[in-house]
């Protein structure tokens, strides 16, 4: 019981910190983030720009909610969906042999490349988000 509580708390804090950290650089520079998204060559440009503008704020809000322990159902649900999106995007970029900046944490030239490390990381975040989500929906509102 105690272990479970610890695991849950750690999942929330790690995930929250990761998403807040990931959001800050993108919020600072939407243009560079749009370039990173566009490099994946998966979306029409209008969706690229909308995503560059809105996605970092979803990350930030979810990060804050996860750490503060409020609205865990919605925030962990969104984080699960986002991580599935990231995994699909990175896997597809790798399958197509694209050598591009990930756009995961930092944007523009300082960003790290897409690759197996990023993919594994996203699976880890996904697992943490599922832990939080499962617990959140068990509790009564």
């Amino acid at each position: 019981m105690k272990f479970k509580k610890m695991l849950l708390l750690m999942s929330r804090f790690i995930l929250g910190a990761v998403f807040i950290f990931a959001a800050v650089g993108k919020i600072y520079n939407p243009a560079a983030f749009a370039g990173d998204i566009d490099n994946y060559r998966m979306l029409p440009y209008i969706l690229v720009t909308l995503m560059a503008v809105v996605l970092p704020w979803i990350e930030l809000i979810c990060g804050v909610l996860l750490i503060s322990g409020k609205w865990l159902k919605g925030s962990s649900f969104i984080v699960i969906i986002m991580n599935i999106m990231f995994i699909v995007a990175i896997a597809s970029a790798m399958a197509r042999g694209l050598d591009i900046d990930c756009g995961c944490f930092s944007v523009g030239s300082s960003a790290s490349r897409v690759g197996m490390v990023r993919l594994i990381q996203d699976f880890l975040w996904l697992a943490l988000a599922v832990i939080v989500f499962r617990d959140a929906i068990k509790k009564r509102a």
């Binding site: 600072y28 939407p30 243009a31 983030f33 720009t49 503008v53 809105v54 996605l55 704020w57």
Partner: peptide, 30 residues
């Protein structure tokens, strides 16, 4: 919760993009 988070993020995102010097032009043309 999902809808409210998304709506708030959208509003904040557009506000930020409006005042941010690194803003991106929201357009269909690359």
């Amino acid at each position: 919760e999902t809808v409210v988070i998304t709506v708030v993020a959208t509003l904040l995102g557009f506000a930020n993009n409006f005042i941010n010097p690194n803003r991106v032009a929201i357009t269909a043309m690359r």
